[in-house]
Design a protein around this nucleic acid. Structure first.
Lengths: 148, 148
DNA sequence: GGTATATGGTGAAGTCACTTCACGATGAAG
DNA sequence: CTTCATCGTGAAGTGACTTCACCATATACC
C-alpha cells in the first residue's frame, strides 16, 4: 500500500489545479484562453505553421484549430497567409502584436518560475527536478504505452 | 535569471498536461467528465451536500452545479433529495452505483500513484514530496494573496 | 405578525473548446 | 488523367462555464 505514493499524487494533483487556475487567470487578463495561448506558444517555438501542423502539435482536430485561429485572427494576434507552395494549406503567422504578447508571456512565465522555485535550496531544487523527471518518464510510458 | 527554475516549471507543466490527459481519459472510459468526477469526489469526502456547498467547494457558479448534477442524475450516480430543514435547498447524495463507481476511482488513483512513485528510492520520494510541498505553499500564497 | 432582505435553485441566453461528418479544392501518384 | 490522400471549413452537436432574471423559502428587524 503506497500511502506515501498516494500523498505524492495528491500533491501533484493540487499543484496541477492551482497552476492551471493561475495560468488561465493570467491569460484571461490579456484576453486569451489556454488553448489559444498554447497555439501561440507553439508558433513561437516553431515559426509559421500550417493548421494541420498545429492540430497535430496540440493534439486536437484540424476543425478545432480553424476555430482557435479564427479567434486569434479576430484578436489581431495572428494572420492567415497562403502557403507558398501548397495552395490547399494556409500558414499561420504572428502579427507584431501577437509576437510582442507571446514574448510578454515568456517573461511572465520566467517570473512565475522564479517565485515558485527561486528561494529553494539548490540541492532541493535539483532533487525535485530529478524526481519530476523520473515521474515524467513513467507518465510518458503510461500514456503512450500499454497497460502493465 | 533562474534557468533552473524555468526548467522546473516546464517539467511541472508537462506533468500537468500528461496527468490531466490521463485522468480525463480514464474518466471518459467510465462515461464521466473531469468536473462531474470532481463533484463526486467531493461528495465522497464530505457526504451529502447542498448544491450551494458544491458550488463553493468546486469554485464554480451555482448555476453550473445544477447542470453537473443534472448530468449525474441522468447517469444514475447521484440523487437530489429535499433538505430536511431548509426547503429551499436540495441535498445531493450518492446512489449505490455512484458510490461504487467513486470507490473504483479511488482504487484506480492509488494504482496510478503506485505506478508513478512505486519504485522510487524512498529518500528521493521524500525529497520530491518536500519540494512539492514548498512549491505548493508558494502557489497557494500566490493564488490567494496579493502581488509581491 | 409583517415587511425587508438575503439565500438556494433554476430558466434563458450566450461564450469557448471540442467532436464527427460531409464536402470542395488542391496535390501527388498511377 | 483518373485515383486517392490531404488541407481547410460548413453544419450540427456536447459539455463546461458565465451572467441575469426570477421564484420560493428562510431570516432578521420593527
Amino acid at each position: 500500500m503506497p500511502a506515501a505514493a498516494v500523498g505524492a499524487l495528491d500533491r501533484l494533483l493540487e499543484v496541477t489545479v492551482l497552476l492551471g487556475r493561475d495560468m488561465a487567470e493570467g491569460l484571461a487578463a490579456h484576453g486569451l484562453t489556454v488553448p489559444r495561448a498554447t497555439l501561440l506558444w507553439h508558433l513561437r517555438e516553431h515559426g509559421p505553421s500550417t493548421q494541420r501542423a498545429l492540430a497535430d502539435a496540440l493534439g486536437v482536430t484540424p476543425r478545432n484549430v480553424t476555430g482557435l485561429v479564427d479567434g486569434l485572427v479576430d484578436g489581431g494576434l495572428v494572420t492567415r497567409e497562403p502557403h507558398p507552395t501548397d495552395r490547399r494549406a494556409t500558414l499561420v503567422s504572428f502579427t507584431d502584436r501577437g509576437a510582442r504578447l507571446v514574448d510578454e508571456f515568456g517573461a511572465g512565465q520566467a517570473e512565475l518560475a522564479g517565485q515558485l522555485f527561486g528561494g529553494l535550496a539548490p540541492e532541493r531544487l535539483e532533487c525535485l527536478v530529478a524526481g519530476l523527471d523520473e515521474v515524467l518518464d513513467r507518465l510518458r510510458a503510461l500514456v503512450s504505452g500499454v497497460a502493465s
